[in-house]
Design a protein around this nucleic acid. Structure first.
Lengths: 340, 340
DNA sequence: CTGAGTCAGGATACCGCTTTCCCGAGCGTC
DNA sequence: GACGCTCGGGAAAGCGGTATCCTGACTCAG
């Protein structure tokens, strides 16, 4: 694999010892190499097109330059935006990011963390909300403990349920704000496409939305709080089910944008127009969707910044207590909820 | 970084030699470990929660288990879809993917390849079309030659201009098909938001579209072939410029979906409705956009499959001649071009 | 009963680098 | 002018594994 040119080759070419070559190229701490020797070494390295073996360096130094990222699906704009933040922050810190994906299976997270532990990744960032599934969480927790015992550090994006540093999205606040904003636009009957029962992010959004409305005196009937997958298809199915009913709410709140999009498809399929026949809101403010027509009312979550924040958290000096970075959300009203 | 538990610890715990422990855990080739010993070793490993150091293994074995991916922007759905394909294929092959991003600066590609070379990545996949920029291409070419001299293999996604295995998207065919389809729907005056002058993918789409129309007897005036960035903003700016003119085409073809979206924004800003006032088509069929309203006419490019194909190409046995994998594209007509 | 083969463990030589540790050389000092 | 320093180069010891080589125990055949 190595273009057989090693540091020894460079040293020989330059007529110096291996140690000197290493010091010249790396600029070792508290050790100076005479200028002419350094020149010779650098010249030799350039001539031979030497490139240090990062694995060997990692091994010798006892630490790598890579950070791991765990997502559920990199093609999902939610995760890819976070990934953009992570790569940017890693880049700034001179690190590489190893991308791993569960392919939508949360139970694989623990295995991926183990994998990243083998790589001795310096830090790992786990994106995507937690589930209320003690088994899976327990697995992940041991994997993480294990990883941290080995000197790695971790940052989570989602709910602070694993005892590690976490970037917490203020889902409840966002959902409540959205509820109030919609109420303010005159809507009085609501349905929620609520995602998976156990999905904590979905749950937070769902419940905060309902509670905020309740405070305003508007109750969402249980039948209009639907569960389903956190995906496009999940939104589509739930919307279809909803529209099969005799009655119909004025607004549908899908707990994420991708689901909202699925809902849009379902509505269109059965000839229900958005927003004329029914209004629709999502959550996340996926940037690719910002300019679609009708503009989707949603709650902005600064995903790229979250990726950056998580990376910085993971890279920060280890601390004894669990650190939480809260990120605010912001309601964005668009044409999909024009009001009554 | 290492949870100090090493293979030696396991060997000691199990009361066997380092070599035996290694063989028991790895199942070395043409070498058998007696069953009871292997059990002992495995038990010791489990007890100590041993996890092999991938770096050390890579070093000893002389090859890593990582493959590199170079994208321009992972948040762009074009690249994230490809990345999904790459991770999937890598996963199947038991490899990890190291994600690197140029952050939109093509001249950084060469540097990223160098970086991946240091990591001794087994293969690298470079996503995103080439530019007609001999300097940048030359840099990249030397970086790649260098990398391959070191035993790595490479696959490119885009134009086969670098003398390496390439997954070639049939842009010209797709654009021509689109042109014919639109002509078939009765449109006779066209404008093209053509992306960067030197961007080969943009150029292929632009020129094939124009040429196909020419064959049908419809000429696009030069003033209506606009250049600009390959981004949302690029599409927006170009569309704005276009709409400032006195005259207006019946259809606007943006050479990718993200630009088309930008164009949509621009149109909406100045009060021009799509498709009532002007029709719009894109290219790529970004999956997140499949259900937006109005549905965007576009050309489907199987991005995930392309990522898979590129990975497989990069991982295939090295061959002397340059291999090209052609992937077809398919026109998808939607409401944004209802026809005249 | 002996010599030629297996067979499977253990010792050990790397892999490519970083980082002690050791040392000789040049220097300032009283 | 001998002594204690600092300075910088080189030898060598790892880092955590893998793979080669060696060796003793057994098997099997003549």
């Amino acid at each position: 694999m190595a273009g057989p040119v090693t540091l020894s080759d460079v040293a020989r070419e330059a007529g110096v010892s291996l140690a000197t070559a290493s010091r010249a190229i790396n600029g070792s701490a508290n050790r100076v190499v005479r200028a002419d020797l350094r020149e010779r070494v650098l010249a030799a390295a350039a001539k031979l097109r030497y490139s240090p073996d990062a694995n060997a360096q990692a091994m010798a130094r006892g630490r790598t330059t890579s950070i791991g990222l765990v997502v559920h699906d990199i093609a999902d704009p939610f995760f890819s935006s976070i990934a953009a933040g992570v790569t940017r922050a890693a880049d700034r810190a001179g690190l590489q990011v190893t991308l791993t994906s569960t392919q939508h299976d949360p139970s694989r997270e623990a295995g991926l963390v183990d994998l990243l532990k083998r790589q001795r990744a310096r830090a790992v960032v786990i994106a995507g909300g937690r589930m209320d599934d003690e088994d899976a969480n327990a697995d992940l927790r041991t994997a993480l403990d294990d990883y941290r015992a080995g000197g790695g550090s971790v940052a989570l994006i989602g709910q602070p349920v694993l005892g590690v540093d976490t970037v917490v999205v203020d889902n409840a606040r966002g959902a409540a704000d959205l509820a109030r904003a919609l109420h303010g636009r005159g809507y009085r009957s609501f349905a929620v496409l609520g995602g998976p029962e156990q999905h904590l992010t979905a749950r937070e959004r769902r419940e905060a939305f309902r509670d905020a409305l309740a405070e305003l005196g508007t109750t969402i009937p249980d039948a209009w709080i639907l569960t389903g997958a956190f995906t496009h298809e999940g939104g589509e199915d739930a919307m279809r089910a909803l529209l099969r009913g005799d009655d119909r709410p004025q607004v549908v709140f899908a707990v994420n944008d991708v689901m909202a999009l699925g809902a849009l498809t379902a509505a269109r399929d059965v000839g229900v127009r958005v927003p004329d026949d029914i209004a629709l809101a999502g959550f996340d403010d996926i940037s690719t969707l910002r300019d679609v027509v009708p503009g989707l009312t949603t709650v902005r979550v600064p995903l790229v910044d979250i990726g950056i924040a998580a990376t910085e958290l993971a890279l920060a000096d280890p601390s004894d207590d669990v650190r939480l970075t809260h990120v605010p959300t912001q309601v964005v009203l668009r044409e999909s909820t024009p009001g009554i």
